[in-house]
Design a protein around this nucleic acid. Sequence first.
DNA 1: ATCAATCCATGAAATTAATTCAATAAAGGC
DNA 2: GCCTTTATTGAATTAATTTCATGGATTGAT
Lengths: 298, 298
Amino acid sequence: MIERNHLEIVREVDRCGSLTAAAEALCLTQSALSHAVKKLEQQLGTDVWVREGRKLRPTQSGLYLLSLANRLLPQFEHAEELVGQIARGQRGSLRIGMECHPCYQWLLKVVGPYLEQWPGVDVDVKQRFQFGGIGALFGYDIDVLVTPDPLHRKGLVFEPVFDYEQVLVVPRSHPLATKPWVEPADLESETLITYPVDAERLDIYTRFLVPAHSSPARHKTIETTDIMLQMVAAGRGVSALPRWLVEEYAHQMPIKPVKLGRKGIDKQIFLGLRERDANVDYLQSFMAMARKTTWGLV
Amino acid sequence: MIERNHLEIVREVDRCGSLTAAAEALCLTQSALSHAVKKLEQQLGTDVWVREGRKLRPTQSGLYLLSLANRLLPQFEHAEELVGQIARGQRGSLRIGMECHPCYQWLLKVVGPYLEQWPGVDVDVKQRFQFGGIGALFGYDIDVLVTPDPLHRKGLVFEPVFDYEQVLVVPRSHPLATKPWVEPADLESETLITYPVDAERLDIYTRFLVPAHSSPARHKTIETTDIMLQMVAAGRGVSALPRWLVEEYAHQMPIKPVKLGRKGIDKQIFLGLRERDANVDYLQSFMAMARKTTWGLV
DNA sequence: ATCAATCCATGAAATTAATTCAATAAAGGC
DNA sequence: GCCTTTATTGAATTAATTTCATGGATTGAT
């Protein structure tokens, strides 16, 4: 078996030109090296150096091992560096799961500065999970979950990162646009546009329409926020989104946020991760930056 | 320090899915593996697997080490295979030094079949040496020397591979072409074409002209055999070459060999190598094939 | 729920491997 | 020729790996 230290020896002997010097460099006695060399040659069944006087000249095998050493040893060294970074929490992969469609816009604001600060971390975002976001966390498909439903289970940790108000978005010229708030009944003649997810995961249903036994005239689903808002601006329907998101888009398109009910619908977004990972530096940092990014938005 | 056996462990645990099975595959007890794993994780300062129930799931570090293992271990294994071949004399480099210009034609006939038989051997031919062919052998610039001058020294071994007669080459229409042999005086009106080497290494001088205190009308040097013979065929001079070589070319061009002196000049070509290498399979084989190739030529 | 089977962790003992020490031999420089 | 440097060798020492014996934890089946 050719071992790493054999390659180390071959490289150092080549560098130093003698066993004695190589032994010095490897923090060994010259005798230890001599023994090691002898054993290696016995194992390989061939000389690695020919002894000429008191010089060592690499044989064919020696030259080959030398090239192998110069190829493999740097990879070992690089690996140690990398694993060290992982150990210190400076490197890793951060797979973010999203269970909150409109949060994608918010996430982009977090990720930008985060990538700058953590050059060793690979960030990826996933939006579909076979067994739900919690399952994805347990199954190691993701490392962090962005969700409005913390659903506590042991082994997982959730932390709120920001609060916001879910509002109705209507065209600026819409009759509802001037109201201080809308009632469920106001939507019965409207087309409601939502993301394509189950109704029980849409607050406008669970916390607004369903309790009032109300429902919209039609229901359309659209994947992307941009298109959704363009549809609203074009008077093709109304939608429910975070207030901060609507206000941001309101600069560019004729839309307006309207409170849902007299008290409005307040929501909270949580970041969840595995308890085991809770003390990993780059994950903690992500939590911290996520919390900070909030302020600029609400 | 990440060692080869660490990579071996990581790979095997991944393959087998459990420590126990991996231990079996590595011919170790489960306990030994457990100890080894623990020590590795301590050294790295990070877990390589997370224990979930009685299953092991690789961590970030573990996944990285696994990819490293899949990259490096095959290289180790390939290296062992290769060194094994070198040890068994099945692989190596055969650098042939030529001190006998016309022998190049002969060498080509040897090398062809040799390459087929020894796919693991890299053959190279060198024709110029700073300190002579012998020096090149001693200095490990070449492995075999093809020479007419064996010049014995200890540490080197020479063996004759073939005999031949050195003859004068003249155009077929030349007056000398019909003579049974030429005398030194016959060349005094001729242009002599030779390879560009010192006169003391040219038999036509040392063994023919010089003893008779004779010399040609002019002396030209040419590097390549083909051009040399074309010059002769064109009546631009005469040259001295092995009879077998001249006879081969005589099919294609109007040239003729003539004996040098009544008795002719007999020569012998030797193959020399370092004593140390004398028992290397692929070198011995080269010697053998060199000897055999002779028959087809003389 | 209980039981058996399977798997991993651990400490102490045994084995094996690596390293040092001390002595020797060989080569190169002055 | 003598002195210095370098590599080899065998025995003693030290360090490491491995095994043995055991216990705890989890899984799947009865």
